[in-house]
């Protein structure tokens, strides 16, 4: 089982969080901590890049909701990028595809500010 890796990349529009590995009960808390530690300014956009997310269960979904609440509280926006098929399926079932703005992958270059 591959552990969770998160890399934060700061861009002009706001932070981009590249999430790789498995997001389940044991790793979701780590992501929640990382996300709520991000500084967001009003009008910025928090991007969660899920291109390398191998697995995600309902605990992972909770972490996305925590990220959304964090962004909303800072009057910022949130988007999920390059959502893998299985995760997209969960988002559809739970109706969250209407809550997050979903965008295709951009092959954005990896950030250099690493954490986790």
């Amino acid at each position: 089982m591959s552990p969770l890796t998160t890399i934060v990349q700061d861009t002009d529009t706001g932070p981009v969080l590249h999430i790789a590995g498995e997001l389940d009960y044991s790793t979701a808390a780590e992501l929640r901590e990382t996300v709520t530690g991000l500084a967001l300014r009003p009008g910025q956009r928090l991007v969660l890049d899920l291109a390398h997310l191998g697995f995600c269960d309902s605990s992972g979904i909770t972490a996305f909701i925590v990220a959304r609440n964090h962004a909303t509280a800072a009057q910022a926006e949130i988007a999920l990028v390059a959502v893998p098929g299985p995760v997209l399926r969960i988002l559809r079932v739970t109706g969250l595809d209407q809550v997050f703005s979903l965008e295709p992958g951009t092959d954005a270059q990896n950030g250099r500010t690493a954490s986790g």
């Binding site: 909701i65 559809r92 739970t94 109706g95 969250l96 209407q98 809550v99």
Partner: peptide
Amino acid sequence: TPGGLLVGILPSAP
């Protein structure tokens, strides 16, 4: 039943 949202995350939900 597409489009039904998780219960409790937004103040008003479809």
